[in-house]
Amino acid sequence: MLTNTELKSPILIRIKFEKQGALRFIGHLDLMRTFQKTFRRADIPIAYSEGYNPHQIFSIASPLTLGIGSVGEYLDLKLKESMDLDDLISAINNASPEGIKVTAAVMLEEKAAAGMAAVLGASYTITGKINDFDLDGLLSKETITVTKKTKKGKLKEMDIKPGIFGLVHTGDGLVMILSSGSTFNIKPDVVLRELCAFINQEYNRFDFQIMRNDIMMGINPYVNLVGETVTPI
């Protein structure tokens, strides 16, 4: 990563942000539109694409499921002129709706930007009816098979156990580290459903509050918890 003084053109920046409260009910496309308007209000010197219909150049990693809050979302953007990162953070935060808050920003080397596609895992903290869960019991099963609906509407069986990288009770709640990204994506509610089934607890999504803590770009599945992970910032 580059420091503030080693500017290159174009300038690529990655920001980490929170999406909480009422903003949990804003879908991915609407979140994109919200950032577009926020950047304009904040007068961020964002770069525009070429062509007849220029649009701001930025992308958001790993869309969040509607209803889930997060303290670890990431957005990469391209600036046409340099800007102090602390100023950038405060400018965005001053123009953001309540519920969106930028917590960090770094400058990227150009090739790092492609890293968003390399998202491999995500960590979640679950609170609510979690006390009776038998984490070791579920993980000791040879396979954890779930039925999933494919895009064509067909039902397909799938073993999610290889995608559960970590599952542990902490003081803050139940922490899950799950495979994420385009190739093997496991949503936390799927795991919650299996945890309930394992102890014959009736599953209701709304018995739980789910918060995404962070996403990970590199992960070693053999390490049980926050071991060998690389977060985007």
Partner: peptide
Amino acid sequence: LNDEILLSVEKPARYIGHEV
């Protein structure tokens, strides 16, 4: 509205206010 209701209707953002 609680999460259960908001997540069971189309476009929950219609009902949450909080806009800029």
